[in-house]
Computed example of a mutant assay.
Amino acid sequence: MSVEAHPGPLQNMSLAMRAWNIRRKALLMGEVQGQGYIGQALGVADMLAVSYFHALDYRADDPEWEGRDRFYLSIGHYAIALYAVLMEAGILPEEELETYGMDDSRMPMSGMASYTPGMEITGGSLGQGLGIAVGAALGLKRKKSPAFVYNLMSDGELGEGSTWEAVMSGVQWQLDNLICIVDFNNQQADGPSRNALAVGAEAPKWAAFGWYAQEVDGNDIKALVAAFDAARALKDPRPRVIICNSTMCKGIDFLEQREMSHFIRVEADEWTKALTVLEEGKPE
């Protein structure tokens, strides 16, 4: 991580605290609109904390710094989670939180790169992010840049043919500067992912295509740190993938226990309740 990104005591904040802050900001944004893909945001908070405060090299005051690692959000409807971490990183001002999803806001409900500093691509239609990441990683290699490309995608995208074309291309071009993060929460618009085309054995499947594949608990920060470090340190001309088995609504027990679906409905009186529950679980 660039020292210029987080000077002083901010560097000492734990990753667990960063993840907690991301969850809190996401809930506050959801409360503004009374809706949002909050289940996904709560589920990926740990992955985003490790990405932005352990793995990525960037400069908060210069989001387009040429030497930065790129973070691509393939899943555009997860934008509420990315906005939360961009605020936590100091790339977006926290004062804009209450503008989420409003007219003229820099934080539309589905992410758009032309609107938001720090958002590298416009996510969706799903299945496109990894292909864009492959192109970017190839371009960086040809420029002899040491930067990495991280691509966060959903388990539902594993059913897209374009994803597997990108998987094969990454191997063909020996993109050892490409790290794909799969949020496997087993939910997509048509129901559980495992009832669709993601039928299990994801890591062996990617490995069979030639990727360095790891599978971890996506809500275990220590496991995520170890996996991210192993992916980046590997001395092998292969792209890397980390499959993160996550829990939607992680950290808010009454939402975790709700019948899961692609879009979790939160009633008007439950936003404050969720924030209270989160506060009770605040890291030391």
Rank of each mutant, 00 (worst) to 15 (best):
M17I: 01
I132P: 12
A55N: 01
A49E: 00
P239Q: 08
M109W: 03
S51Y: 04
E267C: 01
L130Q: 04
I221R: 04
Q35V: 05
S145D: 07
Q33C: 03
E96T: 09
L140T: 03
S14T: 13
H262L: 02
E94V: 15
F209R: 09
V182W: 07
D61P: 15
L10F: 10
A226F: 03
V3P: 15
L97C: 05
E4S: 10
L82N: 09
V216H: 09
R232A: 04
N12V: 00
R142M: 13
S125D: 00
P108W: 05
I179M: 03
N21M: 14
G101P: 14
G30W: 07
S74A: 12
P7T: 08
N21E: 04
W164R: 09
Y115N: 13
G156N: 02
I22F: 10
R70C: 09
A223D: 01
Y78N: 15
S145H: 02
R232I: 00
M109R: 08
A19H: 10
G111M: 11
G34A: 00
Q11V: 10
E31D: 08
K144N: 15
D220I: 07
F184D: 07
D61Y: 01
P9K: 11
L138S: 08
R68S: 05
L234K: 15
K143V: 01
I264Q: 06
D104I: 00
F254D: 00
V266Y: 05
L48K: 08
A233P: 14
A233D: 12
L130S: 01
F263S: 03
L140C: 09
A207Q: 15
L82T: 13
G90M: 09
E98Y: 05
L278S: 00
L138G: 03
P283F: 07
H6R: 15
A113N: 11
M260D: 07
D176M: 07
Y212P: 14
L126N: 06
M1F: 06
G170I: 04
S145P: 07
G200Y: 08
A268S: 05
K250Y: 11
W211K: 07
I132A: 11
E165H: 08
S110C: 10
V85L: 14
S74W: 09
A223V: 09
I179Q: 02
E202K: 01
R194G: 04
